[in-house]
Design a protein around this nucleic acid. Sequence first.
DNA 1: CGAAGTATTGAGACGTCTCAAAATTAGTGG
DNA 2: CCACTAATTTTGAGACGTCTCAATACTTCG
Lengths: 209, 209
Amino acid sequence: MFTNLNTDPRKKPRLLGELGDLSHAKVSSGECKYSKGTEIFGQAEPADYIYQVIEGAVRSHKLLYDGRRQIGAFHRFTAEAIADTTVRLVKRQSLERVAKTDPAMVRSLLTMTTDNLQHVENHLLLLGRQTARERVAAFLLEMNGRLTAAGVMALPMTRRDIADYLGLTIETVSRALSAFQRKGYLKVAGPYHREIIVLNPAGLTELDR
Amino acid sequence: MFTNLNTDPRKKPRLLGELGDLSHAKVSSGECKYSKGTEIFGQAEPADYIYQVIEGAVRSHKLLYDGRRQIGAFHRFTAEAIADTTVRLVKRQSLERVAKTDPAMVRSLLTMTTDNLQHVENHLLLLGRQTARERVAAFLLEMNGRLTAAGVMALPMTRRDIADYLGLTIETVSRALSAFQRKGYLKVAGPYHREIIVLNPAGLTELDR
DNA sequence: CGAAGTATTGAGACGTCTCAAAATTAGTGG
DNA sequence: CCACTAATTTTGAGACGTCTCAATACTTCG
């Protein structure tokens, strides 16, 4: 998957994901490790680099001047929490040079970007036109689709991350989850950031139509 | 610009835009004309084609089962309203064949997709975290940036289109515009769908920070 | 065990939506 | 060009949902 990973809406770096593997490509790249909670940007000129997550999990977000935050996507490469992460840095300039000699890679990049675009456009509909409960239901089903089979999954992020992904407050997310539990749509167990959710998808799917 | 143009969130066609010109490319393409209000899709299998607007203006949107709509982007190639439009159809399959022989075109597509992704990700922030007035202000400034110089512009779409673009109701859009007029941020004149807006960007820019 | 961080719950405030009516504009046929 | 009708926009009043602020509960970590 592909996305911005920004603190400033005006800067436009890119984050590479699962589809492409640039490790053998003829680009000048370097790996960097970031521990949990570290800002990946601010350390290199964002717009000049492309990032690929090798291990860990990353969230990409944008900020408004007053701190309001919107997460665009979660990127997960292990079952871990938003945790220690290794990232490969690729100079954009270098990439564009390679693009001329490696058409397959460009095609791969195009596929990734297109997939990401589809995800983000679905997210527009969610943010623009769905209620709080519909958003939380959609989020749970999205996570469920990516993870373990059969409605059992871990939620490796905080309520704040979920809220900022769904354009809600943490209180509203919490209330929605509580309501779903009361209705028998899910059960929660386990420690923070590794909560186990047992889904009864029937109810949620109806909400998420 | 690049975007989905959907009635069904599950189908994923692509709409090409200003950057690329496929008319001379070695792809099998055909032009189609659509009059105002026509659904471009439903007439060919959406997922199998890529679309490029040649003349006119197009909006792309997604729908929920109950009719709630979210517009992802406006695409404008004349100053006209969402009006009669000519579209070039390119078979996706054909495009992928060409991609192997025409790396420049793939790079062009990648650029377009990346640009579109940036636009959509900014829109996520708007839909997730900005108030109604901030959204309307951002919309006006976005349109202003694309059109005539110096704060004079035509608004070639209905309140419903604007509302669905901003994730609001038509009433809320109307109230925001009225409030801006009362504050002296803008003046409106002219007929429906060709309203002339005279901006005083100072106030709006502050709102749109 | 204590402290800090995170999540849940409650009560009220606020903003947007819904529904309804009035005003304005567009389109049509005489 | 005018009258009439349909469509769109504006405005108003109240309903509803989410946010804000505050208190409590729970978890993690020292």
